[in-house]
Write a protein that binds this DNA or RNA. Structure first.
Length: 496
RNA sequence: GGUAACGUGGCCGAGUGGCUAGGCUCAGCUCUGCAAAAGCUGCUACAGCGGUUCGAAUCCGCUCGUUACCUCCA
């Protein structure tokens, strides 16, 4: 009854029906964060997007192996020979071991992702743990004559590669245009062409992060880890490769080149999926522009652009209310609207739980049943159409209107068939919770609520309404709270 | 300069050539002890100018404007 999931494939520039290579198994690789700074809203968008894809594939019964890496080595500060490793730069700044910095920001990243209800991947490999695999891949590319060694460093020979392959197929670049428009960067003397990129870099004496290799003590190039790790865990050809749009060129282009040039001879993934950027006042939010908003600042409301704190689920809803391939503009106002929308959706969940269907006296209204079935179908239609969560959410709100009307008796519950009722309930709940990954987050301040209850308790005691007193005690006990009548007043404690 | 997008009502944001996207805001109504919630109604837009078409926000062209990638970046 449902149509199939279509995804926009950057490689072919069109939407394609998703067919896994080895159903029911699906292999998915997503470029993870470089752990040298606080996760920000941009990270959230990418990882929430692919989290929904992961969830939806699983919802459809696929057995997904989701690999998302942690980049803890290898990203140069610039393309110059004296370029410092990003991790290392930060480490020197803070007088910490590089791996200490890596661990710290990895932890922060994990915490933030958990708050956003982003499921952990099945495998989360680290670049530093796969040096051997990367060296292996470099050897293969050298064997195939598509890389060359200079002074202990190894570079990918883009022009040689382009004779038998198409460098630029993913991002639509033309190699001659690239050559004409390359900037002059310092420290590129070793390269035969400015387009060539490093597979292995010899470490300068001061460089801490270094590993032995056949060519020098050094470190792997920026793009290699994803090629090596995706191949190790998903095979030479797998189903989906995801990442932010800004990684399309050169990162993903280089990945394809590396895969083709090694013994893999493959584009790596069959579907390349890219999520768009978050903008702020119409400009891309990015590290280089210094205009990014950390997730922590968002959650705590500490950023100067924010009037309030915005909960993780509000942020998640905000992201999901736009299609992942459109740029999404950030503003305090938009977040305000997102919060309301999110809460509205959550209230629907509660209302749905309170609805009880009874076979008695039901007089099915054919048109109403049809309408509701169609509204439910619309939710899936949106998801299947290139994961259009914006449309899905719009459909959910349409469904919610009916749910609320049923709850208030403005629409008679008896007019529904059992099947329609179940569809209504399952569709709404499943999509909101399982697929979109939105969950209730209690904003209630427990202590405050407890104080309120204790006031009632006190009042009941004073008026000697002991049945009330007993029932309050009993209810609180269910929550693991005991009331203590002290001479000094009333207090509570966790039940031990 | 090269390449690729985009320009939708007060704001955000969907949109497959013809049929109400949706959310937020605002106004009114129903309900309500007051409120809140919820429902209903209204504010009905597609940058501009041409063209194709019976019909275009949707296709084509031009103009204006904005952005992204080309350099680390989700």
């Amino acid at each position: 009854m449902q149509q199939k999931l279509s995804l926009y494939n950057t490689l072919t520039r069109k939407k394609e029906v998703f067919e896994p290579l080895h159903a029911p198994h699906v292999g998915m690789y997503v470029c993870g964060p470089t752990v040298y700074g606080e996760p920000h809203l941009g990270h959230a968008r990418s990882f929430v997007t692919f989290d929904v894809l992961y969830r939806y594939l699983r919802y459809n019964g696929y057995k997904v192996r989701y690999v998302r890496n942690i980049t803890d080595v290898g990203h140069l500060e610039n393309d110059a020979d004296e370029g410092e490793d990003k991790i290392e730069k930060r480490a020197k700044l803070e007088h910490l071991e590089p791996m200490e910095v890596v661990q710290h920001y990895t932890n922060v990243f994990h915490q933030d992702m958990e708050k956003l209800n982003v499921l952990p991947p099945d495998i989360e490999p680290r670049a530093s743990g796969h040096i051997i695999e990367q060296i292996q891949m470099i050897s293969e590319i050298l064997e195939n004559g598509l890389a060359y060694e200079v002074n202990g460093s190894v570079y990918f020979d883009v022009q040689a590669y382009n004779k038998g392959h198409n460098y630029g197929k993913l991002s639509g670049r033309v190699i001659d245009d690239l050559l004409n428009n390359t900037r002059e960067l310092e420290g590129q003397q070793d390269k035969r062409s400015p387009l060539d990129f490093a597979l292995w870099k010899k470490a300068s004496p001061a460089h801490i992060m270094r590993w032995p290799s056949p060519w020098s003590d050094g470190f792997p190039g920026w793009h290699l880890e994803c090629s090596a790790m995706s191949r190790k865990y998903l095979g030479t050809t797998f189903d989906i490769h995801g990442g932010g749009l800004d990684l399309m060129f050169p990162h993903h282009e280089c990945e394809i080149a590396q895969s083709q040039a090694s013994h893999s001879h493959s584009d790596a993934a069959r579907y390349w999926v890219h999520s768009n950027m978050i903008t702020i006042n119409g400009q891309k939010m990015g590290k280089s522009l210094g205009n990014f908003i950390n997730l922590r600042e968002l959650f705590s409301g500490s950023h100067k652009m924010l009037t309030d704190q915005y909960s993780p689920m509000t942020v998640r809803f905000f992201i999901l209310q736009a299609h992942y391939r459109s740029p999404l503009d950030f503003s305090n106002e938009a977040l305000q609207a997102a919060r309301k929308g999110y809460l509205k959706l959550m209230n629907g969940l509660r209302v749905l739980d309170k609805l009880e269907y009874s076979e008695e006296g039901h007089t099915p209204d054919e048109k109403l049943n049809e309408d509701l079935q169609k509204l439910a179908q619309d939710c899936f239609r949106g998801l299947n159409d290139d994961m259009n969560t914006a449309r899905t959410i719009a459909s959910l709100f349409n469904l919610l209107k009916k749910i609320n009307s049923l709850y208030l008796g403005q629409l008679p519950l008896q007019a529904l068939t059992r099947g329609t009722f179940d569809t209504l309930q399952n569709t709404y709940k499943d999509i909101v919770q399982e697929v979109l990954g939105l969950k209730e987050e209690s904003s209630l301040d427990t202590e405050e609520m407890l104080d309120l209850v204790l006031d009632f308790y006190k009042e009941a005691k004073e008026t000697k309404a002991y049945d009330k007193v007993d029932s309050i005690r009993a209810e609180l006990k269910k929550q693991g709270i005991v009331i203590k009548d002290l001479k000094s007043g009333i207090d509570w404690a966790y039940e031990e």
